Computed example of a mutant assay.
Amino acid sequence: MSVFNLMSKVELITENGEITFGLIQDLVENRLYVSISPDDREFKLLKQDDKIKCIVYDKARILGFDGVILNRIAGDMPIYEILSYENFEIIQRREYVRVKTSLPFIYTDNKQLTKLNFNDYSQVTKAFEKIKEFSKDGIILDLSGGGLKFASEESIQVGMILVFVLELLDDIFMLKGEVVHKNIKTSSNKTVYNYGMKFIEINEKNREKIIRHVFKIMRKNKIK
């Protein structure tokens, strides 16, 4: 358990796919003590013997493992005692876990929007207001914290910068990406292009949210 650092962010995912966020407060042998803020709007009350997936965001890596709730310690900030027992996996952030999916999304290569600074919230808001005027449709084929693969009937050049809207459950992201590779699939009826796109000008908060959604999709796929 020495692989964890105190005060690292941790995500607790139930078998139903519900998520609660917390901080590591202590480590005792194979027991992990995680505090949960009662002010967290996504707070979920966990019960003794609940089986959970834990995702720890620890500096340069993400570590996932299966655990079970042993106890809930009451207080101003409730603390869960978690027994960690199997299926440990360490993922380097630069390698970003990729999950297959099939999500409709809209995108644009409009120069006015792609030149906006996506680290400036006011400019992202401006892009939200305008993207539907210039948007085209595509399908996201897989997703990771570093980028995505998508299909479209439009031919796009490698190196093109795109602005797009990504909807994941209750989160909606306006992001910018660069097309890094292109494949063509033809049939008797039509030509479809598959693209690989890496995120650019993405802040770490949004990247962490996308990574959490990736793990949640993986969790649901395992349940199915």
Rank of each mutant, 00 (worst) to 15 (best):
F4N: 04
V10H: 03
V10Y: 07
E15S: 11
E15Q: 14
E18R: 12
F21H: 14
L27P: 02
R31N: 14
R31T: 10
P38A: 06
P38T: 08
D39N: 11
D40W: 09
R41P: 12
K47F: 13
K51F: 05
K51L: 04
Y57A: 03
D58Y: 11
D58P: 09
R61Y: 12
G67D: 01
D76M: 10
M77R: 11
M77Q: 12
P78S: 06
I79Y: 04
L83Y: 14
L83E: 10
E86V: 09
E89C: 05
I91D: 04
V99R: 02
K100V: 06
P104V: 09
F105G: 01
Y107C: 04
Y107W: 12
Q112C: 12
L113V: 10
L113K: 07
F118K: 03
Q123T: 02
V124I: 15
K126L: 14
E133M: 13
K136R: 10
G138V: 00
D142A: 02
D142F: 04
S144P: 01
E154D: 15
E154P: 04
V158E: 15
G159L: 08
G159M: 08
L162Q: 03
F164I: 01
V165D: 05
D170V: 12
D171F: 12
K176C: 00
V179K: 00
V180R: 10
V180S: 00
I184K: 14
K185G: 07
K185L: 11
K190H: 09
V192T: 12
M197C: 08
M197G: 00
N203A: 01
E204G: 02
K209V: 00
K209R: 15
V214I: 05
F215S: 00
I217T: 04
R219W: 13
K222L: 13
K224N: 13
